[in-house]
Design a protein around this nucleic acid. Structure first.
Lengths: 346, 346
DNA sequence: CTGAAAGCGCTAACAG
DNA sequence: CTGTTAGCGCTTTCAG
């Protein structure tokens, strides 16, 4: 069975169907300028009955305006970036702007490719995760002459605007909280990802604050791939076998932290009496655990919303003006103490 | 501080920079036709040093070809659709095609809007979740004259191609397995989502198979919003208070199932001796739980990959031919027995 | 192997 | 309020 591929409808088809010029049809369909109620009706009906869908490719080329916003993120496989996307989506609801997502798998070369591909659609703005990019990526971003918001992290110098939290400070604050509770023999468990700069910065902030108090991490363990919950379990078991004296475990994300927590509870170990725990991100999942893991909020959705708002504002600015305001926002991430960080009074 | 908005570079700029006609530059940049090695070099260097990024808007309009594939899904907030996206991304890696994602929040009107918006970019294909759509949506899909793959579910008639599992069968098979293990007093816990047709079909298949064996669900409970893990806990507690005689709980997804499992273990209830449990989806998270929840794989990534492959194949077909093959694929979802469905021998 | 001309479907800008 | 004209930046097609 073969069938000729039908040609999509054009403005001209609608124009002919209702006896109104293409230009007027275009105006009606975009609610632009004044059109009499009568012709408006006629056009709308013709368009609907034909099933006309405007061609944005042609429209964007003609108007030199594209309602797309490029969103470049490293991953979709943990819950953190989907939540950022939710925030972005919400902020763009009821606006003409539309996010288009590209995933880099934490690889700088892929980031470059993905960005190049997206910029070739001439988006109205870019939201991109992180402050660390290849020279080529930075160059593209600068040359694009559109608003660029770097998100998640604010420890560094952005190309244009940035919205995020200070991961170094997050690490430091958690270290301070842990020390204040009297924990001294601390283990660190994280991902084996040299390219996850935010995890690295948290780690650096953490060790730095410990060092100032004369404390050093006693043991560390890294993983990659697989179920984070299961890995958290395994790593915790291995680490405690190796270093049974530890009294605190700091996990670089909540999922492995949750795995560690479940393991310790299984073993009948007193948490946080014998061992304290903390994670990072503030994921919703923690609400359902037998005990509330201490964590620190990464402000994911808020970051998405704010970044989208910045793009919105700037894309409405007069064409030839760049804003005075640098647009740098460090959101306040706070410790959730939960039940695993405050030592029992004895 | 104001600064003139710089004009993005065009083919003409590259052409002038290297003294080669626009046409030849275009050919080089697309690896099309024969170009002498010398001019090729010249062009490539000029393009790179200028930082030229081609304008796909113009290119697509001229060539009447767009390398975008619309992907329309209901949600990003549980792990199921991100995994489908991962499968799609993988299949499109190293091909010219690029997915563009739209989210509908399980709302038919929003599905309509999102699809309309995406079709206005004249994508090369559509991958859309589910078989149930509004008339307008179905009409748009038919009129678009591009490959359409409906995913996740195969209980129904697709517009074009479909890839998924039979959720009705999934419900039936789980019911059969539960009955075979001798469970008789069964509770159902699910989402309060009249528009989640797949959950509904699983439920229907489930009750149907029970009915054939003369068994009826004894109690049911639905939730919406919040942390699924926490909700699973709460709902389980409520249900057992109300109906303490139940010997099996069937959860409509793994997250609430995991919450239920954690609750029962906390209470010291014998699972699966006293109460058996099963969920649905086969999420990775289950690997890290204290006991393996029984579940059924939804083949998420596989569905994404297969759908993307179908789009790929069809978009390479000669322009005016529709394939003979309807392209309907029901993948084999299987029960994972885990540790919560096989009753202890006593 | 390279170039010139025509136009993709729409909208900005200007006339009536 | 409505229509006309001239492109947007690229690729197709055809001619060297």
């Amino acid at each position: 069975m073969t069938r000729p591929k039908q040609r999509p409808l054009t403005l001209r088809d609608v124009s002919e169907a209702c006896g109104v010029s293409e230009m007027t049809v275009s105006r009606v369909l975009r609610n632009r300028g004044d059109v009499s109620a009568t012709t408006r009706e006629k056009v709308l009906e013709a368009a609907k009955s034909l099933g006309y869908v405007p061609n944005q490719i042609a429209g964007s080329l003609a108007s030199q305006r594209v309602n797309l916003v490029a969103v470049v993120i490293p991953s979709l496989s943990n819950m953190v970036f989907p939540e950022v996307l939710t925030g972005i989506n919400q902020a763009f609801e009821d606006t003409p702007l539309q996010p288009v997502v590209g995933v880099t798998d934490y690889l700088p070369e892929k980031e470059e490719q993905v960005l190049y591909e997206m910029l070739s659609w001439r988006p109205s703005g870019v939201i991109i995760a992180g402050l660390e990019h290849s020279d080529a990526t930075r160059a593209m971003l600068k040359n694009a002459a559109i608003p660029v918001v770097e998100i998640m992290d604010t420890d560094g110098t952005p190309i244009d605007a940035m919205v995020g939290i200070s991961h170094r400070r997050a690490g430091r604050e958690m270290a301070a909280a842990i020390l204040k509770q009297g924990y001294q023999r601390i283990g660190f468990l994280g991902t084996k990802m040299p390219l996850d700069h935010r995890a690295r910065k948290r780690f650096e902030g953490f060790t730095e604050a410990l060092a100032k108090a004369g404390v050093e991490i006693e043991d560390r363990e890294f993983y990659s791939g697989g179920s984070a919950l299961a890995k958290g379990r395994e790593m915790t078991e291995m680490m405690l076998q190796r270093s049974p004296d530890l009294d605190f475990l700091y996990f670089s994300n909540d999922m492995i932290g949750a795995g560690g927590l479940l393991y310790l509870l299984d073993q009948g170990i007193d948490v946080p009496g014998q061992i304290g725990l903390a994670g990072f991100n503030g994921v919703e999942l923690l609400d359902g655990l037998p005990r509330r893991l201490a964590t620190m909020d990464a402000c994911r959705k808020e970051i998405g919303t704010k970044a989208a708002q910045i793009i919105l504002e700037r894309s409405q600015l007069p064409e030839d003006v760049l804003p005075e305001d640098p647009g740098h926002f460090t959101l306040a991430s706070k410790i959730s103490w939960g039940d695993t960080l405050r030592r029992y009074r004895r």
